[in-house]
Amino acid sequence: MGYLAKCLTRGVMVPVGLLAGSAGNSLAADLGPPPPAPVIDTAVQPAWTFRFTPYGWLTAWNGTQTVRGRSVKVDASFIDIVEKSDTLVALMGDFEARFGRFALLGDVVWSRVGADRSNIRSRTLAPGVTGTLATSLGLDVEMVIAEFGVAYEVARSGPLAFDILGGARYWYQEADLSLAVTAAVDIGDLQVAGARAFARSGSVDWLDPIVGARVRYTMAPGHELFLRGDIGGLGVGSDFSWQAIGAYGFELGTYQGITFSGVIGYRALSVDYAQGEGRRRYEFDMIQHGPILGLSMRF
């Protein structure tokens, strides 16, 4: 018979601690070892982040513009365009919403640009026009370029990330080709205003599917290098379109939860689009290229 049992049988008082310890040991033996503590997952879950970047694109134009069958060759620098354009500052902005590896992309460019005769060469200038035309020419184009799409990060190695992207690029244009008229007997379908005749395109728009890729490289905390390339059109909208962008972003500071960064880089966008025949033909075969300067806001 155990010690405790003998003591209880004989009426001997047993310390409570001994009873408690014995009971506790017996209970612990019955219940077995305590269950392991629950593991709490403290990993940071991805959340949406947003970035908006208003910017300026200092474009030069090189290519051919055809309005109502009249074609001109354009070779205009940014300075040439500024001197002739109705506006010195266009409206441009880039937007990205990111969740983990997935991102939504958007970019809008509105511009109204012009070039004068020193930057334009005549090509099949005025079929069906009799009389005398002076050599003074002018080209004004109002344009909207809107991009939207998605990107997905397919690979990452340390500070280097590689994305694939797809989407669409929408184009809207209105072009006026003006000619100085000195004496004309028949100017066909041109519109005359004072001493100038105009070939007006009216509203022209089209939609290009695009596919591409981009590389993001974090050079140091707050410093990122960005490279992007895409192709589009492929006969669906334009015959062919391509784009290349290289930019460098550097963090300036944070204010009220918004991180501000400066952006500098270079952008080139080419498109070859045509519709109609004869005097109804419209063609825009142009490369727009130049530096970009912007201010990025991330929140």
Rank of each mutant, 00 (worst) to 15 (best):
L4I: 15
K6A: 11
L8Q: 09
R10V: 07
V12C: 09
V12E: 12
P15R: 15
L18D: 13
A20Y: 03
A20G: 02
G21R: 10
G24W: 02
L27W: 00
L27N: 00
A28V: 00
A28H: 00
A28W: 00
A37E: 12
T42P: 03
Q45D: 06
W48F: 12
W48H: 01
W48V: 01
W48E: 00
R51N: 11
Y55M: 13
G56F: 01
W57V: 07
A60C: 06
Q65C: 03
R68L: 14
S71Y: 11
S71P: 11
K73L: 10
A76Q: 09
D80M: 09
I81A: 12
V82A: 13
E83D: 15
S85V: 05
T87S: 08
T87Y: 10
T87Q: 12
L88D: 10
L88W: 11
L91N: 11
M92V: 02
F99H: 10
R101V: 01
R101T: 03
G106I: 04
G106E: 03
D107K: 10
W110F: 15
W110A: 12
W110I: 06
D116V: 05
R123G: 12
R123K: 13
V129R: 04
G131E: 04
G131H: 01
S136R: 10
G138F: 08
M143C: 04
M143R: 15
E153C: 08
V154F: 14
L160W: 08
L160S: 02
D163S: 10
G167Q: 05
A168P: 07
D176E: 15
L177F: 09
L177N: 11
A183C: 05
A184H: 00
A184K: 00
A184L: 14
D189E: 10
V192L: 13
A195P: 03
A197N: 03
A199C: 10
V204M: 04
D205Y: 02
P209Y: 06
P209L: 09
R216P: 02
R216C: 02
M219F: 09
A220W: 11
G222S: 04
H223K: 09
L227P: 06
R228Q: 15
R228Y: 07
G232D: 08
Q243A: 11
A244T: 13
A247D: 10
L252G: 07
Y255N: 06
G257Q: 04
T259D: 02
F260Y: 12
S261P: 01
V263W: 00
I264A: 12
Y266A: 04
R267C: 06
D272K: 07
Y282W: 06
E283D: 09
F284P: 01
D285G: 08
Q288I: 01
H289Q: 15
L293T: 02
L293H: 04
R298T: 14
F299D: 00
F299M: 07
F299W: 12
